[in-house]
Design a protein around this nucleic acid. Structure first.
Lengths: 133, 133
DNA sequence: TAATTACCTATTGACATAGTAGGTAATATA
DNA sequence: TATATTACCTACTATGTCAATAGGTAATTA
């Protein structure tokens, strides 16, 4: 289940994509347009900055801006940064300890298959496919 | 993220599938073979009985049994019963109040597409594909 | 009658989610 | 230089879900 954090992150990215060209976009504007608490967005945006998807500058005229074109940003990247993991089961998450039952596990192949399906879907879905203009 | 409940439920179903023919299988045996607390399995099994996937009878010689052949039981059915919902986002879960932003939501089509992908995958995956014998 | 099994209600500790609160640092403009 | 604006930082909290555990009662068979 994708949490609000991941879903809001995508909406922030869409908003920034649709308002790029007009320089930096203040988070206040994004929050108002998207009807999301600015305070909460600060947390989300930090992940996106940390993942080098966007950058921010302070002061008047400041705000956030995409670091790449929307065609070159996948939804998968956004979710990877904001959700802990996109994996459907714990034993396939990054950095989890290897499951002792893995060798004999009868369900692992199915989970792996689904995992690949999921990652392929979101990695192939570009931000540009979600924007209006 | 699929929880232990859903994952254990699938393992119970596999276990029952592999031991059908020998009448009813006591939960105690399943719990031992799968190394899962019997007490916890009771909760899970209740959902499966409620969904008419298995039936149980009390007393000596009792236990649980599949109601259908493994070829006719999908993993999707099992997960629907034990996980609250298979949907990736809250606004697509069964019985959720309709989102007021739905009409203008730019991400909804993507979530719907992913939702279909997920349901198709698990509904087409049959229990018989997971069993050993 | 005793053993075995399903089935029932309630409780709990740990953790994640979805925020809120109150600041400090950086930058532009008047 | 003062002020407004913006990003950026640390901490806190209420609520809910997850993953069980605990302690029974009812049904069935030998």
């Amino acid at each position: 289940m994708i949490s609000t954090k991941g879903r809001y992150a995508i909406r922030v990215m869409i908003d920034l994509a649709e308002h790029r060209g007009s320089g930096y976009t203040p988070l206040k504007d994004v929050a108002e347009r998207q009807s999301i608490s600015k305070k909460y967005l600060e947390i989300i945006v930090r992940d996106l900055v940390g993942g080098d998807l966007i950058s921010g500058i302070s002061g008047k005229g400041g705000g956030y801006r995409l670091n790449r074109d929307p065609e070159d940003i996948s939804v998968g990247e956004i979710l990877d940064l904001t959700e802990g993991s996109l994996s459907a089961v714990a034993c396939l998450s990054d950095g989890c300890e290897p499951c002792p039952r893995a060798a004999e596990c009868q369900t692992l192949p199915m989970w792996s298959e689904y995992d690949k399906l999921t990652h392929d879907f979101f990695n192939n879905k570009k931000l540009s496919e979600l924007t209006r203009n």
